[in-house]
């Protein structure tokens, strides 16, 4: 398989990851996510990783690196903010490193070893981040379930 084909083969999964990482309010991919994915792919294309596995890890790594340039707890650009108390809102409340660790392992099914490589941290550090992310998300979702629902209505 050509180098470029290996990148293209990873793009569907990469868009899913990038969407959950920077625009969790969207259940479909948006232009901002595609922009991020394209920049990550172009970046990896320049670096020319040779092994197939390395290409996949490098693509995810590039998406995280490029995402960190923006405020980690703000959705990308014009991305829709998720409803308060929703699962996506809980996800967005996590710091980007925690969010990325959780998504790599729980959504993308990466092994701890590969996820640690993508994030550029040790395995121990990865598991610590993953554990923190899961606890914080669970706490956040629990709190939103306990909070009485607020119904907004338009008052003329």
């Amino acid at each position: 398989m050509q180098f470029r084909d290996r990148i293209v083969a990873t793009l569907p999964d990469l868009r899913r990851f990038a969407g959950a990482l920077i625009a969790p309010g969207h259940v479909q991919s948006c232009g901002l996510v595609d922009d991020l994915v394209a920049r990550a792919a172009a970046s990896v294309l320049r670096e020319r990783h040779e092994s197939g596995t390395a290409v996949r890890l490098a693509l995810y790594s590039a998406v995280i690196r490029l995402s960190q340039n923006r405020d980690s707890r703000q959705p990308a650009g014009m991305a829709t903010l998720p409803p308060p108390g929703s699962f996506a809102d809980g996800l967005l409340s996590l710091q980007i490193q925690h969010r990325a660790a959780l998504l790599l392992v729980s959504l993308e099914q990466f092994s701890y070893e590969d996820a640690a490589v993508v994030l550029g941290v040790s395995r121990t550090f990865l598991v610590a981040k993953l554990s923190t992310a899961r606890q914080m998300l669970a706490r956040r979702l629990e709190a939103s379930n306990e909070r009485p629902a607020t119904h907004l209505r338009l008052v003329k």
């Binding site: 293209v8 569907p12 868009r15 969407g19 259940v27 479909q28 595609d34 792919a41 959504l107």
Partner: peptide
Amino acid sequence: LRATFGRIAQEPLPRQLTASL
């Protein structure tokens, strides 16, 4: 997580994304 975002991976890739590569 998989139920919410899984469908993104099933979407057809946008032409401009593949064209750029």
